[in-house]
Structures are given as structure tokens and as C-alpha cells.
Design a protein around this nucleic acid. Structure first.
Lengths: 147, 147
DNA sequence: TATTGTTATACTCTATAACTATA
DNA sequence: TATAGTTATAGAGTATAACAATA
């Protein structure tokens, strides 16, 4: 192992910056902010039973989540419905339009990821992505009844 | 390649958060803030000819860099000296104490990195670190005359 | 009384503008 | 006049506190 390598966190932050920069034009093309995309992603695998839970899942203060939800709801990308079982709760779920837009963004973003990993040959890039995914997946906080 | 994997940026951000959390106790033990450590790191390979250049290298506004430099200078970890060639410039360089402290932090941080990559076996972890380093290194903005 | 969602307020962090000195 | 460093001010982003509805 090289001893003059960058700290793990340092390397991660540099690559993350590049990855975010690569995402931006794709999101912009769909008129989405980064946090919009994060929220849509969090809802992909199931509705959020409460807005608080959704806020926790995306690690964002619940007060800051409101304008995002308002924006996405106004565009018809998600729906907020009162939970009949407990009328204090608002269930948040993707609409079909939201799911479609999310899919389009994902495809565009994945295409752009190749350029970020350009210094690696394709096999090494795939291995990096897979290893990262293995480490990252357990760190994710999910949302929804089955989670 | 799995199709249900996380976006690259998503995975990176999750792992980065974990890596930063792992760094914190080490830095705290040495009474350093994250940005202190970043600045010391930037100076490791050579003095910064000006504070502005150092600010650019660590991607921080020059006005926000001042309190950091004040703090580190007060602790004797770095030195600011007036450039005789152009008395407007202040050359910033590590002291021996600064270099020693940086080294101690680095060793502690690298030891903690293993826990972040615990889901991977040692070979895969080493491969991940090396691949990340390869991608990240060209993205770094360096400081100093030879850069 | 406790909790969800919401609104209003305060706080922190960051960048911009203004000042001093050197060139 | 232009630039480095510094100081003071304003702006964006974030979290805390207060409120209304429901349980």
C-alpha cells in the first residue's frame, strides 16, 4: 500500500464533488434541485408514512423539507394524503409522473458517472462502484413501512 | 453490474459521512477542527506563497481562512512570514511542531479508516482505497511554488 | 399531555464590500 | 491603479421555538 496516498475522507470528498458536478446538468435539464432528487429517490421504494420520517431519511430538518415537498407536489411529482388512521400524518408518495422523471434522471446520471471515473479502466471502475455500494448500502437510512 | 445500486454520488456521500465521523475523535484528541487539519495537510508538501493561494487550494474563502490561521499560528503549528520580495504577501509554512502533529493525526486517521471499510475484506478495501486515490489525485488543487 | 405538520424566529455559516498597506 | 491581507457587513442556509390540529 502506498503511504503517500490521500486520506480516505479527502479522496472521497474530491470524487464526490466531481460526481455532484456531473449530476448537475442532468438535474438541471429536468428542472430539479439536488434535494428534490434526493427526496424522489427516498420515495422510490415506498411511500413515507410521515413527513418527519422522510425528513429523517434524507437527513434534512423537517422545516427545510416543506418547501421541497411543496415544489414537487405542485409539479405533480408526489402526493401528500392524510392518513385516515391518524389524521395528523401526511403520507408522501410518488406519482407516476414522479416515478417516470426519477427514472429519466437516474439513467442520465449513470451515463455521466463514467466520465468521473475516467482515470480507471472499465473493469476497475465497475469494481470501484460495486465496492462503494457494498460499503454504502448499510449506511443508508430508509423510509416506509417495510423499509 | 447490478442495476439497483446507489448512484455514485449517493454512495460517496454516505461513505464520506462515515469517514468523517471516524476522523473526528482523532482530531478531537489533538484539539484540531476539521478545517485545521485540511489546512495543515495542504501545507505538508510545501509553503504557500500567499494566503489567497492557500485559501484557493483548500477551497475556502480567504476571509474564513483567517481565524484558522490565527488559531494554528497561536499554537505554533505554522508560521506566517512577510515575503521580502513583495511585502504584501505572507508566506505560510508548517513549523516542525505542525509537521509532527499532522503526522500523528494522519496515523490515527488511517488506523480508523479500516473500520469504515469493514464490510470489505482487506484486499478489497485496499483496492478501493487505491482506485479512489487514483481518481481523486488529479482533482486536487495544490499549493506552493513547485505545487 | 404528546405528536404531526406548519409558521415564525434566531442562529450559524458563508460570501461580499469596505479599509489599510504595499506595490 | 491594482493586489494582499484584514475587518466589517450583509446574505444564504440551517436549526430552534412557537402555534394549530389531532390523538
Amino acid at each position: 500500500m502506498r503511504d503517500d496516498r490521500l486520506d480516505l475522507a479527502h479522496a472521497l470528498s474530491l470524487v464526490l464533488r466531481a460526481a455532484l458536478a456531473a449530476e448537475e446538468p442532468v438535474l438541471q435539464a429536468h428542472d430539479l434541485q439536488m434535494w428534490d432528487y434526493v427526496v424522489l429517490n427516498a420515495l422510490e421504494r415506498g411511500a413515507a408514512p410521515t413527513q418527519s420520517e422522510l425528513a429523517a431519511a434524507v437527513r434534512r430538518d423537517k422545516t427545510r423539507l416543506l418547501p421541497i415537498l411543496d415544489r414537487l407536489e405542485a409539479r405533480g411529482l408526489l402526493r401528500r394524503t392524510v392518513d385516515p388512521g391518524d389524521r395528523r400524518n401526511r403520507v408522501v408518495q410518488l406519482t407516476d409522473a414522479g416515478r417516470d422523471l426519477l427514472g429519466a434522471c437516474k439513467r442520465g446520471i449513470r451515463a455521466g458517472e463514467r466520465s468521473v471515473l475516467a482515470p480507471l479502466d472499465p473493469d476497475a471502475a465497475a469494481a470501484l462502484i460495486e465496492a462503494l455500494d457494498r460499503v454504502a448500502r448499510p449506511l443508508r437510512t430508509t423510509v416506509g413501512p417495510s423499509a
